[in-house]
């Protein structure tokens, strides 16, 4: 079996992330998360203070400029994925070792596939 090239795998992760944040997130459960629920049950939920960025265009994973609920959340999710990708991708590309392999205990596996897609 020919293994998929690195670019195919990376593209796959990107497509899955965009679909999860842009489409599937609409169907996520909306009940309070573990900490929020505990804070309500234990009686310290009201110590939460207003969020300084609470009026932003994407606050609460919605797009304030889109009225359709599904589209509003989907656009916010896609924007989030792309912003995180740009920042984390940029940061890790800056930090990486250029032109030399990172620490490996022993040399590369012999069956290392070459990039098929160029």
């Amino acid at each position: 079996m020919r293994r998929p090239g690195t670019r195919t795998v990376l593209l796959g992760v990107l497509v899955v992330s965009l679909l999860l944040a842009g489409v599937v997130s609409f169907y996520a459960a909306s009940a309070p998360d573990g900490l929020t629920k505990v804070s309500q049950d234990q009686g310290f939920a009201d110590t939460e203070t207003d969020h300084a960025a609470g009026d932003g265009p994407f606050a609460g994973y919605g797009s304030s400029f889109i009225s359709d609920e599904r589209l509003s959340g989907g656009v916010a999710g896609v924007v989030g994925v792309l912003v995180v990708l740009a920042l984390a991708g940029g940061l890790t590309l800056l930090v990486r070792r250029r032109g030399e392999p990172a620490d490996q205990p022993v040399d590369q596996p012999a069956d290392e596939p070459v990039d098929q897609d160029r």
Partner: peptide
């Protein structure tokens, strides 16, 4: 390149 995508 995988690192940025893992964050996403």
């Amino acid at each position: 390149p995988l690192a940025g995508l893992v964050a996403a």
